[in-house]
Amino acid sequence: MRHWILAIAFTVTAIGPVAAQTTRELAYQLAETSIDDSFKSLKPVLDGAFDNLQRNAASSGKSDRSLEIFIEEMKNAFNRENFIKAIAEVWARDMTREELQQALEFTNSPVGKKFRTVSQSMKEPRNLMPIFLDACSRARARALNVGMNTAGLDAACSQFR
């Protein structure tokens, strides 16, 4: 009888934390599992935008130490942990507990892992080439339509061929 009670207690203890997860906890777990690669690619873009803001302010004579401090704080604030918290809050607010559980199960499944891996390949220039080539073609047509010289555009677009 004693072993039976221990087995039941162990089972309830083992299942308890999973079943007791709140919507917010599930959202945080999903964000932590799924956004790492997104954050790694977003962070340099954000840092570059802040650097541009600082350079533009400096070149226009509107930069001061308070702006520099603000930019430093913004760069520090956009860290992985804050990014996860922000996304988790949105998901917890806009998704049900059941939806989050399903998303987490998918994310951790073999298909979900492969989906994330394949999705990351979209960062590779060769996979984005059709977009660049289309933009070059449309820009060239527009420039020629108004009689512009396209030598600079052609040189820039040649790197995408």
Rank of each mutant, 00 (worst) to 15 (best):
residue 62 K to V: 11
residue 3 H to K: 13
residue 61 G to W: 08
residue 59 S to W: 01
residue 40 K to T: 01
residue 26 L to W: 10
residue 54 Q to D: 12
residue 62 K to F: 12
residue 52 N to C: 01
residue 18 V to L: 14
residue 59 S to G: 08
residue 5 I to P: 01
residue 64 D to S: 14
residue 23 T to F: 05
residue 26 L to K: 07
residue 62 K to Y: 10
residue 55 R to L: 09
residue 41 S to E: 04
residue 26 L to N: 09
residue 51 D to F: 04
residue 34 S to H: 03
residue 58 A to K: 15
residue 14 A to M: 15
residue 51 D to E: 12
residue 4 W to Q: 13
residue 18 V to N: 08
residue 10 F to R: 00
residue 16 G to F: 11
residue 28 Y to D: 12
residue 42 L to F: 14
residue 8 I to H: 02
residue 24 R to S: 15
residue 8 I to Y: 01
residue 16 G to K: 03
residue 50 F to Q: 04
residue 27 A to M: 06
residue 50 F to H: 03
residue 29 Q to I: 05
residue 31 A to I: 00
residue 15 I to W: 15
residue 6 L to I: 11
residue 53 L to Y: 11
residue 17 P to E: 09
residue 18 V to F: 13
residue 49 A to M: 15
residue 20 A to Q: 08
residue 49 A to N: 07
residue 53 L to A: 13
residue 9 A to T: 06
residue 42 L to S: 14
residue 27 A to R: 07
residue 16 G to M: 12
residue 8 I to N: 06
residue 7 A to C: 08
residue 55 R to W: 04
residue 53 L to S: 05
residue 28 Y to S: 11
residue 30 L to I: 10
residue 23 T to W: 04
residue 10 F to K: 03
residue 11 T to Q: 03
residue 21 Q to R: 15
residue 40 K to C: 00
residue 29 Q to R: 14
residue 64 D to H: 09
residue 7 A to P: 03
residue 60 S to H: 00
residue 24 R to T: 13
residue 35 I to H: 02
residue 51 D to K: 13
residue 37 D to P: 01
residue 48 G to C: 07
residue 60 S to R: 12
residue 4 W to Y: 10
residue 64 D to V: 06
residue 34 S to Y: 03
residue 34 S to R: 06
residue 44 P to L: 10
residue 32 E to K: 06
residue 3 H to L: 12
residue 12 V to N: 02
residue 20 A to F: 12
residue 8 I to E: 02
residue 15 I to V: 13
residue 12 V to K: 02
residue 50 F to G: 04
residue 16 G to E: 00
residue 55 R to C: 04
residue 54 Q to H: 08
residue 12 V to H: 02
residue 7 A to N: 00
residue 23 T to L: 06
residue 57 A to D: 05
residue 17 P to W: 11
residue 22 T to Y: 07
residue 4 W to S: 05
residue 15 I to P: 01
residue 47 D to L: 01
residue 22 T to N: 08
residue 43 K to V: 05
residue 47 D to Q: 05
residue 61 G to R: 09
residue 15 I to D: 03
residue 35 I to A: 08
residue 63 S to T: 05
residue 63 S to V: 09
residue 43 K to H: 13
residue 7 A to F: 04
residue 58 A to M: 09
residue 36 D to F: 06
residue 20 A to G: 13
residue 10 F to P: 02
residue 10 F to V: 11
residue 16 G to N: 09
residue 48 G to I: 00
residue 42 L to W: 05
